[in-house]
Write a protein that binds this DNA or RNA. Structure first.
Length: 522
RNA sequence: GGCUCCAUCGUCUAACCCGGUUAGGACACAGGGUUUUCAUCCCUGCAAUGCGGGUUCAAAUCCCGCUGGAGUCACCA
């Protein structure tokens, strides 16, 4: 049988990183079995602007390289793939259920239902529908309809059943149908609700495996009953644990962003976002940078310069493992080895540290050309490099990237090398005081500046030997001068090799910056 | 509160199904080495089976209870 999985996001305007993990597992399961992966848009809540709300979601899939065989933009044999355009299907199914007496028109008002619920609460028994509308005579029903009384369509739960699910991840889970309230399947305006539309769609689209987050586990008995009522063959279900906030067991949620800012493990990501996004023009007015893109969104990782391979690797290791030691997983490895029976049952926190570590690994594997290309985008966005990119500029940036080496972890790190592109770079005052504003150092710096100006061979190779000779001759430790020069020409205490900086900046700039530093001390 | 799920180092996990490991790996952290910075790299260290009962020669592993955590209870998805 051809494996068909689906991911069915509602267009919320961003792609949730936890949702992305669920989508990845669906995609992997399909690819592992040579099956198909379908993207369906659950937009039965019409209130949203679909163009802008769906864009980021599709973009996230494309960025990570997770293609879909059917869905938006590509179509497919079960089109349309937007629930908002599939009304006929839902209507037909609803009519059938109504005609067969498996669903009923409920005229209850909200007030009545609230009262019933409170009553059940008082009596400490679980609430289930009283089904008063079922007692209506045909004449009364016609009367109500003629009066235009609003009604919803409710599925009539067969209360004499036990529902047994054989979940591919959680094994056997059981419910007593007698405890389940009758779910509304169509609103007063006739539009379908999630539980119903999903069942109709999964069946019509021939989905074989419903792989979704654990929070849907409690929807499953209703969906199983609905499938049975409709006479559908049951798909397999697999409920993966949700992705939790770092260091917690709570579901990662966009609504808790403010609280995450204080989360010790998340904090650095927010801070980096606050630093970087304003520099590349991705801020919302009057808001910190991370307000536009926060680490709950997949977009954050793209915008700040993570590699798809790193994000995929991290996502693939949340709640799944290949064996007792493999950590580095390419998408290819994931496809070859993915299995649902190795999915862990307990929720797992997103681990920013580990993601960062994976990023370090994949960045080392990433080749120079594309690396330069991405860095260029950041430099242009930060207005440190002007477009169009000329060959000399590209060459220069390539040299900077090479000099940065493994210090370039995420692409935004290239902005730490702003001093290569502008004279108005930031100066680390604390270290400037420590390394430059010190007895004897300005004089040493001035002397060295003079020495550099007169040097016949200004190249990395000779510069290093030369600086040592210079220091030895004056009885100074070379470290003193190295640090002082670094602070003077880069403003920072850390960074690429000093001699690389000296050469890349060029003699003229170096002399000017040393002069400025010396002047700054006075 | 009802229903349902879950429980191994700080974190992500392996071993659990089919009882016997000094409970393994990775990240983080700490210390050391390399690199006159930082990053990388190498070495070392730290650190876990929630509790209580069973079953058994033997329990992280099987069973029961407890505790704890979480999800869900809409005319949202």
């Amino acid at each position: 049988m051809l494996v068909r999985t689906r991911f069915a996001p509602s267009p919320t305007g961003y792609m949730h990183i936890g949702g992305m993990r669920t989508a990845l597992f669906n995609w992997l399961w399909a690819r592992h079995h040579g099956g198909q992966f379908i993207l369906r848009i659950d937009d039965t809540d019409q209130a949203r602007n679909q163009e802008t709300a769906l864009g980021p979601i599709l973009r996230a899939f494309k960025w990570l390289g997770l293609n879909w065989d059917e869905g938006p933009e590509v179509g497919g044999p079960y089109a349309p793939y937007f629930q908002s355009q599939r009304g006929d299907l839902y209507r037909a199914a609803a009519d059938r259920l109504l005609a067969e007496g498996k669903a009923y028109q409920d005229f209850s008002t909200k007030e009545e239902i609230d009262a019933d619920r409170k009553q059940a609460d008082r009596e400490k028994r679980p609430y289930i529908n009283i089904r008063r509308s079922l007692d209506l005579t045909d004449a009364q029903r016609q009367q109500f309809l003629a009066e235009g009384r609003p009604w919803v369509l409710r599925f009539q739960i067969p209360r004499d059943q036990k529902i047994v699910l054989h979940d591919l991840i959680r094994d056997q889970v059981e419910w007593d149908a007698a405890l389940l309230p009758d779910p509304v399947i169509c609103r007063a305006d006739g539009s379908p609700l999630y539980n119903f539309a999903t069942v109709v769609d999964d069946s019509q689209m021939q989905i074989t495996h419903v792989i979704r987050a654990e929070e849907h586990l409690s929807n499953t008995p209703i969906q199983i009953l609905l499938h049975q009522a409709l006479g559908n063959p049951l798909p397999e279900f697999a409920h993966v644990p949700y992705v939790a906030a770092p260091g917690s067991k709570e579901k990662l949620s966009k609504r808790k962003i403010d609280q995450y800012r204080k989360n010790p493990q998340f904090q650095r990501m927010f801070q980096r976002g606050d630093e970087v996004f304003p520099k590349i023009g991705l801020t919302q007015p009057g808001q910190p940078g991370s307000a536009a893109f926060d680490p709950v969104m997949v977009e954050y990782y793209e915008k700040i310069g993570y590699l798809p391979a790193a994000v995929l690797n991290a996502l693939g290791r949340i709640g799944w493992s290949l064996d007792e030691k493999t950590e580095i997983l390419s998408l290819q490895t994931l496809v070859e080895n993915f299995s649902l029976d190795r999915v862990v049952k307990a929720p797992a926190g997103l681990d920013p540290d580990k993601l960062y570590n994976f990023q370090g690994h994949w960045m080392k594997e990433f080749s120079l050309g594309p690396k330069v290309h991405h860095c260029l985008s950041f430099l242009v966005a930060a207005k440190l490099v002007a477009e169009p990119i000329t060959p000399p500029v590209r060459d220069f940036v390539t040299k900077v990237v090479v000099a940065m080496g493994d210090r370039l972890k995420i692409f935004a790190d290239i902005l730490d090398a702003a001093f290569f592109f502008t004279d108005t770079f930031e100066i680390d005052e604390k270290n400037f005081d420590k390394r430059v504003r010190k007895e004897g150092v300005p004089a040493l710096l001035s002397a060295f500046r003079q020495h550099l100006a007169e040097l016949p061979d200004y190249s990395a190779a000779s510069l290093e030997a030369d600086l040592h000779t210079f220091c030895t001759a004056r009885g100074e430790q070379s470290g003193t001068l190295v640090h002082a020069v670094r602070l003077s020409i880069t403003g920072q205490a850390v960074g690429p090799g000093l001699y690389d900086c000296l050469v890349l900046l060029g003699r003229e700039t170096v002399l000017t910056r040393i002069d400025a530093a010396v002047k700054r001390v006075a």
